[in-house]
């Protein structure tokens, strides 16, 4: 017997603040347009007509880090690009999330050499890793969905340790 039942027909719902905010965050998450290499082409495919990521509130790829809350690192990160990547990450407003798309961004992929970072987690903290070289657009969408689950479980107040 919740209060919802009494008030439901008056158009009022009660919930927790966490739920509302997290619902808002997951339904309009703006990724930053951050294509680096081959994976970026699959990211573009995911945006295009056949896969249509805008179904999940992500049709807006922002070119500016200041307007985005998700960074999809799509492709290999070279040692020359790494400081740029970190600066862009620092420019994004809180809260922010990172998806490492593809093997290269996750662990270096086939390029185990002097030029490529062995995983973008060396420069920015990563929330979701998407495997594949390149991951199919469906895999990317699955990665985004996984991130949504994570965001939905976000707690505003850290649970107190007993």
């Amino acid at each position: 017997m919740g209060v919802e039942q009494k008030l439901g027909n008056m158009g009022v719902v009660t919930t927790t603040l966490e739920n509302v905010v997290n619902w808002g965050r997951t339904n309009a998450m703006w990724p930053m347009l951050f294509g680096l290499a081959c994976c970026a082409i699959e990211m573009m495919s995911a945006q295009s007509s056949s896969y249509d990521m805008s179904r999940f509130g992500m049709e807006l790829m922002r070119a500016s880090p200041r307007q985005s809350d998700l960074m999809i690192v799509a492709g290999r990160v070279s040692r020359k690009m790494a400081p740029v990547l970190r600066r862009l990450y620092d420019q994004m407003p809180e809260p922010k999330w990172v998806i490492a798309m593809g093997d290269c961004a996750s662990c270096g992929g086939v390029f185990n050499n002097y030029a490529i970072l062995q995983g973008v987690d060396e420069v920015v903290p990563v929330d979701v890793y998407v495997a594949g070289c390149p991951p199919r657009p469906e895999a990317l969408i699955h990665g985004v969905m996984t991130l949504y689950e994570k965001v939905k479980a976000d707690k505003f107040v850290p649970t107190q340790e007993k």
């Binding site: 680096l36 290499a37 492709g75 070279s78 020359k80 390029f111 030029a115 490529i116």
Partner: peptide, 9 residues
């Protein structure tokens, strides 16, 4: 910025 070291690899 995308130098991958392909030739060396």
């Amino acid at each position: 910025f995308l130098h991958t070291g392909v030739e060396k690899n």
